Amino acid sequence: MNPARIESRLRELLEAGALAKSTSSQELVSFVAPLLDSGVLAWERSGAGEKLCVRNAETLSSFILDRFPFTELEMEAEISRRVASVGRFRNTKTLRSDTPDIVTVRGWSDMALWHKGKPVVVSEATRKHAIFSFALTPDSRYELRTSCALVENPAVLLGFERFTIQSEIPLAIFAGGRVSHRLLDWLASQTASSLHVHHFPDYDPVGLSEYARLQGRLGDRTSLHLPVNLADYFARFGNKELLRFPATRRLLAKLRSVPIPEVCAVIDLIDRHNAVLEQEALLLRLDDCQGASRPGVA
């Protein structure tokens, strides 16, 4: 059902008093079924066909107002579509959103993120406030000029220093689970030859599926973070329960046909341990023969 089209036809019906049956779609007829049942609207003969007639204009007007509080012309031009969608249809998702993405990063170099040709002082914001955020619009002037991490979960983002790899990866971007289309488009549009996106997801079917999606857009400009001791983390902290969900099993089966070496390597670990690994585990230190190891690094 297209709410905007329904609204337009209802207002036309109210103004004209009738609509030809040939121009009354099935979705419109279904929408006004309560009005037909109550006699507010009725079918009447019109030549060789029928027309939908208004029997009670006041009730029809109330019906329209109840479902479509504001017309398109009554909405303020400067408000976002998400707000307008509530005003017109009582549902934020009816109109396609134009709300900017809020991109949250942490940085340890002021040469990583640039805006309008000038470097952004991300390191100071990270030091003082732990994070830096900006609004990503379709015509955004922000650009990346170095390697970065795309981190799925907030705990790993906030604990990223424990990896001690800031010299190689001086910027971490919060993915928030599934990367938004706009953020992915922005990453794919970057032109700096030094850019490489290191993906830090959960080591489970959802995380691997997301990495495959990144690969599809970024190609060899992205890689999956695979610590050399990842198998040890699986053995010590892998979660068997999370692998038992039917949806997880179905997604895992689909991923077996994905010809990406990193995905295959993690699936091998999942099979070997019959478990998945949440990325927060990498912030824990494993003891090895040389003493306390660094958290999970490549």
Rank of each mutant, 00 (worst) to 15 (best):
G17I: 02
L41G: 03
E58Q: 13
L95S: 06
E72F: 08
N91R: 04
E12D: 08
R145G: 12
D66M: 12
V121F: 12
A16Q: 14
F132G: 01
P100E: 04
L28K: 05
S123Q: 10
R141H: 14
S61I: 03
R88A: 13
H115Y: 08
L113S: 02
A16D: 04
E27I: 10
A20W: 11
L41Q: 08
P34D: 07
S25L: 10
Q26H: 14
E15W: 08
E27T: 15
S85T: 01
S61G: 06
D101P: 02
F89G: 03
T126Y: 10
M111A: 14
G39P: 07
K128I: 10
D110Y: 02
W114E: 04
E76F: 07
V120K: 04
S123P: 01
F89D: 04
L65E: 09
G117V: 14
F31H: 13
M75Y: 00
E78V: 13
T23G: 00
A33I: 01
F68T: 00
R55K: 09
L65D: 00
I131H: 08
V54Q: 01
D66T: 11
S123K: 08
L36T: 01
K21Q: 15
D37M: 06
L73T: 13
V103E: 02
E72D: 06
R145C: 09
F89L: 07
S133R: 15
D98P: 02
S30H: 13
V40N: 00
D101T: 05
K21M: 12
A125C: 08
R145L: 09
A20H: 12
K118C: 09
F68D: 00
A18Q: 03
S133P: 00
R96M: 11
K128W: 12
T126M: 08
T59S: 09
Q26I: 05
F68C: 02
T92L: 12
L60H: 00
E27F: 04
R145S: 07
F132L: 15
E78W: 11
K93T: 14
